[in-house]
Design a protein around this nucleic acid. Structure first.
Lengths: 203, 203
DNA sequence: ACCTGAACACCGTTCAAGT
DNA sequence: ACCTGAACACCGTTCAAGT
């Protein structure tokens, strides 16, 4: 085993973000403490304060990084289905659901009010905004193809996003009734919901 | 001032729930501690354990009580607009939004994963289920009136609920873009979203 | 049955000090 | 600049003891 350096970490800031994500996956939101993160990164419990103002600030960094990955994953899907807008919309929604389920505690950190003053973290706001712009692009393509109703793209995009986001939230909270979950698999439920706002292509 | 009895509270259990709701409104989710709740109810920090197994259990009780109030408030609206299904749907959604904004930290407690093992609290599950049934009733009336698409009422109700719930979540998180919020007021945004799943009555 | 007070392990945050 | 160790106020939870 290589001896752990107890000093001069090199890139402690990113090591702390990484450790945070790992603890989140292992111990959940309630198990995420600054002291545990520091320990996992191999530094004393006070060391993080050299890089983050407080716990909120670390959480903001974890969330921002999460948004970057979300954007990346959704982007791949957007490119993949460029020629088929309605399919593109469904696959983007599905990618979003998978991202949430893949690491649900990180998703909760990003979207469940753990971060209290989002406005104080410009990178977080910027990443969030960038992801929404991506959804808007997909919505516009669907409107042009006649697959979504016309109307302000911002607002139609908001509707679609709200719908899928709400679905995931309720799912993660265990609030979706048994009877609904038994009728379709997850993918089927996502498609059913989007069909509610989509214009049937058969006429 | 009447002397506070330091012993034999009478109904400490409900006093603790009430104190919890008050602290939630005052200090937010992160400010809700069992010790504060106990202090506000005028008992020692160990007293709550005579009535609740742990903090989670108190949170479950607060959430369950919240669901009861939500059901009550929505019920009033359901009765009020019985003769006009599409209006009924909009007003129910609006009542839900108002409930969330009226006491947003309690809403977060109810829906943001603070309660970790919902299944362990049967009353909580029952109240949640009961509220969903109410939404289903409204959806069925709308389907019968031709205002919502046909399909399994469970799933259509889930779509409507997901949409409004997601909207509130994004709103409470400050994730809704400025451009969207500038185009309509809150009520207008709720209506716009429901219009996305509703069948235009003009044909 | 209902509540208290001391105790324990854990937490976020600060700060003087060390290299 | 980067990190440590002690300290402080707070937390959830347990438990022997008191009425």
């Amino acid at each position: 085993m290589p001896k752990k350096k107890t000093y001069h970490h090199g890139d402690l800031k990113n090591a702390l973000i990484k450790a945070g994500v790992e603890i989140l996956a292992k111990d959940g939101v309630s198990g995420l403490s600054l002291r545990k993160v520091a320990a996992r990164a191999g530094v004393s419990h006070a060391a993080p304060y050299a890089h983050f103002a407080d716990k909120q600030s670390l959480i903001a960094a974890i969330s921002t990084e999460g948004f970057r990955q979300l954007y990346e994953q959704v982007s791949v899907v957007v490119d993949e289905y460029k020629t088929n807008p309605s399919r593109q919309l469904i696959e983007v929604a599905w990618a979003y659901v998978q991202f949430a389920l893949d690491d649900s505690d990180r998703f909760k950190v990003m979207f469940s009010g753990i971060l209290e003053k989002e406005k104080d973290y410009p990178d977080f706001v910027a990443e969030s905004h960038r992801s929404f712009q991506l959804v808007k692009t997909v919505v516009e393509a669907n409107q042009a193809a006649g697959a979504l109703r016309s109307g302000p793209p911002d607002l139609v995009a908001l509707s679609a996003w709200s719908m899928i986001h709400g679905f995931i939230m309720l799912l993660l909270e265990g609030q979706i009734s048994h009877t609904a979950l038994e009728q379709r698999d997850l993918r089927g439920l996502v498609e059913f919901q989007l069909e509610q706002i989509m214009i049937r292509n058969g006429g």
